[in-house]
Write a protein that binds this DNA or RNA. Sequence first.
DNA 1: GCCGCGCATGTAACCGGTTACATTATCGAC
DNA 2: GTCGATAATGTAACCGGTTACATGCGCGGC
Lengths: 352, 352
Amino acid sequence: MSGRPRKPDMTPELRTVTIRDIAREAGVSVATVSRAFANPERVREETREKIFAVSRRHHFVVNAVARSLASRRSGLIGLIIPSIYNSIYAASTQAIQSAAETLGYTVLIGVSEFAKARETELIGQFVARRVEGLILTGADRERAALDMIRRERLPFVITWHEARQRDTASVSFDNAAASAAVVDYLHGLGHRHIALICGHTTLNDRALARKEGFLNRMASLGIPASPDGVIECDFEFEEGRTALRTLLTRRPRPTAIFSANDIVAVGVLHECREQGLRVPRDISLVGFDDLPIAQYVTPQLTTMRVPAAAMGERAVALLLRAIEGEAVRSETLETELIVRGSASFLASREIV
Amino acid sequence: MSGRPRKPDMTPELRTVTIRDIAREAGVSVATVSRAFANPERVREETREKIFAVSRRHHFVVNAVARSLASRRSGLIGLIIPSIYNSIYAASTQAIQSAAETLGYTVLIGVSEFAKARETELIGQFVARRVEGLILTGADRERAALDMIRRERLPFVITWHEARQRDTASVSFDNAAASAAVVDYLHGLGHRHIALICGHTTLNDRALARKEGFLNRMASLGIPASPDGVIECDFEFEEGRTALRTLLTRRPRPTAIFSANDIVAVGVLHECREQGLRVPRDISLVGFDDLPIAQYVTPQLTTMRVPAAAMGERAVALLLRAIEGEAVRSETLETELIVRGSASFLASREIV
DNA sequence: GCCGCGCATGTAACCGGTTACATTATCGAC
DNA sequence: GTCGATAATGTAACCGGTTACATGCGCGGC
């Protein structure tokens, strides 16, 4: 053995340094080192400083994986959103990220692409990673997902939609009421033939709630809402264009369109121009979400503003309290119709 | 439903079930259970099925935290982006997420908000969580961050900008060349007074590269590029509006504006209308990124398309190979000028 | 019949922290 | 100076997996 030339020890710290190394060098026990990092106030300042000095010298970084295992707290919360790409979820996600961060949690983001099976799978992965809680989008999901959450006693809060059960927490707004408010607004402007474009109601309970809010209010205003005045589509510009073309074939032709999503609304707006229709003169349009682009199209979009960021923040706050074992109450936030230039009084000659 | 007997086990599994429980009940050793989940092919099918059956009955979910600690592989990669809210990063993030996911990795997303200190801090957190690799935005960062990455021997790949050193991997495109191509295009249309709006070059090396590409090409075309023809701002609509107002005070007034970001370009477009300027007749405008909105404003935006999704996908592929210990080569992807309606020939009377 | 080999499985030592409980130091009160 | 309470620290048993190494078994070749 002696003949073998030893590798010159170029690399410092070949082995990753652990609290045991720090403890030895600082002349304290591992427990003290652990405390110095996890509960500094439980260690005498002098000792603590010595520990930190040694740690710094070795660039010691606490291993969060080991910490999670031992403490049974991962410091992780799982967030499931249908899509990152859609700016509306981006806003709430950003809010959730930063709120969680300030409160010492890391967010694991899962993108379900509006597929419930995918969501269930993601929840499974989150459970495996031992997230401490979940923030979910919408109230509708697979039985398997709910079972797993319950079985693991995983705190969770629902966003974008009210929870169905009293015992589950949600931070949301009233999709149906917001939708109904748009109907009222358009009705007040004289419109009677109002079409709705919304998300796929089979995949998306927010879309469903908005559709129901729409139809119910139409009914209670005594307006005939023919089923072919409602179109369901994805949240893409292009889909809005297609939807508009379809709606223009309907008789009587709608004088107003409520698009329950701004992206789609902008697509509609664009296609209106292509078709030679002036908005709002020839046709009125109201969006939903109040994304930034709503202000940057011509005319500016009248739209229902949704409290995306606030919802994210509150959801984190509630979730963390639920994680602490407190009972939490669902919250309902306000929406606000932002009146801009895409909807106007119906020119009287057009009233049927 | 008939009078099905109520389930008596109200609280099953008080203690979380571990592989030891499964092993005992299946009559095998913990090692075999571990293998059945981690390397199924290393366990005889019959044994494996027995293990899975028991696991299913107890809803056993492998504890990924313990697994990470023991195997020293977290299955995590860290991604740092300046912002989620900006749709351009959303596109690459989405791509990274899904690519990583299919390859069995989970992405931890950190949002730096264009602050280098924040990025360094996030990298520290990622190191603590023992991510196996990093995907970073841009090549410019604090020394402390680089030191930590190197010290931990953490594989990483840079996106959106070429790596400065030969030994670091990047998946990107040539920001300067793309920018220069826009100058060429506008120059070819007869423009001589071209203004640039870009990100803050002190915070953002992509912005810097685009600015340099712009200035250098201007110089080599013999066009005087006055320093006040360049404005740096955040990536917000509103900032574009402000920028335009400023540019209109410049003499000679620019006949074309290159906005190195589509969001800002849309703001510019909007403000042009407010100011009574027709685009492209009175002023030409070219954007950068080719975000979806570029098609949904009027006129449609001529813009430099950037391979955001492809870049994300390739970055993941490279990173995973780097994690496997392979040496990887940086890649440079192509950009493409998408000519739409916001830039046109300079009316000859305006040529100075 | 013996040997070598590969496959399936078992044993037990980790991985790097936390924390219940025990022990020792500190300090004011009497 | 003694005592008890409290603060600071230490000891060691976890947390729940992985994996190096050992063991046992079946099988083809000689």
